[in-house]
Design a protein around this nucleic acid. Sequence first.
DNA 1: TAAACCCATTAACATATCATTAACAATCAT
DNA 2: ATGATTGTTAATGATATGTTAATGGGTTTA
Lengths: 231, 231
Amino acid sequence: MEKQSAKILYVEDDVNLGYVTTDNLQLHGYNTTFCKDGKAALEAFKKEPFDLCILDVMLPEMDGFELAKAIRERDKNVPIIFLTAKTLKEDKIAGFKTGADDYMTKPFSIEELLMRINVFLKRSKVNATKEELPSQFVVGKCNFDFDNLTLEVAKKKNELTQKEAELLRYFCMNKNRVLKRDEILKSLWGDDDYFMGRSLDVFVSRLRKYLKQDSSVSIENIHGVGFKLNA
Amino acid sequence: MEKQSAKILYVEDDVNLGYVTTDNLQLHGYNTTFCKDGKAALEAFKKEPFDLCILDVMLPEMDGFELAKAIRERDKNVPIIFLTAKTLKEDKIAGFKTGADDYMTKPFSIEELLMRINVFLKRSKVNATKEELPSQFVVGKCNFDFDNLTLEVAKKKNELTQKEAELLRYFCMNKNRVLKRDEILKSLWGDDDYFMGRSLDVFVSRLRKYLKQDSSVSIENIHGVGFKLNA
DNA sequence: TAAACCCATTAACATATCATTAACAATCAT
DNA sequence: ATGATTGTTAATGATATGTTAATGGGTTTA
């Protein structure tokens, strides 16, 4: 298996430090994109996926905390490391609360940064379902195209939203198996609280509405446990 | 749907700090095992698995680095966090090289520690759902699938509730052994009073109803003591 | 810049499930 | 016998789920 070099998004408004660090990262084999402000970083993130983000906190346009939140909304798994001069306990806590994975304070040693980068890349590689997930599914008499967000049930084409499609794909990949609520929520919502649970119920309700024309398919509730797609 | 609290191994030779921190961890819902030296910690780790380790570096008997290596040999995934007074860059690098995931320096804030613990538990939980735990039991002519809550008796599929399944699993894991009422109640109900006892009787009655098609299996009452699953 | 739109979330209320509790019968120990 | 324990079924009520509509943030369109 060819080892693709990891893509890192690095945001730092001190350009001197920024260039030095970027050089160092590239020297160590990381494909590094360097941005000088939060807005540019978010644009870069929207364009292409990254394997890891290193963010300064004090940034022009959009601060690092806001940026981290925006990144988390789009990708709940990508590791985020703060790298900042703000050493206060409160700042650290705030940083972690945005969904960050690590918080380093300046001045820092490049070796330590490399070590910490390595920790998270290693851990996310374990998960790496980077292998392309299937896009076409046939369930009962339904045709579901994940990439095109379409679900054909009894000749009728339905357009799904991204989240509806993600949930349906999760069911399709695990049909006829009991899926626990918290597993579903961890996988698709990234966390598990009361309101996310209710949100899941709403989505299940919508999927059932699409599927009700096909009597050979149903999403069954397992009380107190989760759901099962019967097909 | 009871969620199992994460088990943490915490090693610290300063007992005062150790007790305070252990208290704090337990207060936040972590099942914490506290050891005063490296040797004891390794013994504890050999006995039972942990979800996360927090290690001091300077320890009697066996230092934290050695301990980390020994733990890594047995489990290459469990998150390891160093928590130490050694602030030198070289020490940090050495720490990460043992396979550690994080390195915090004293003095530390408990909030930050909790945040960092949370980072790694959340990430390893995603992995955890991937490995399929065996949940299939064969008793007499019955097939019991705990995860899917199904019990097949003489070609007939029964759907169990979560609690029915938990009780049946408990019997299956201890078949042909007398189980005391209070043991069962402690394990599955978490406590033992009169009404829980009656509840247990109701569940035993239901399981017997499912199993009565299979004459090779029976749940026998041991008067005044408890029950035994004969198979 | 505002208006319109999309869509996930939250709220609100309706309904269903299932562990518990109750009630009574059967069995056991002494 | 008779009080305690267990077996069984049904009633109860807390909690989980089903469903539709309101909300509001973010994005696109006018």
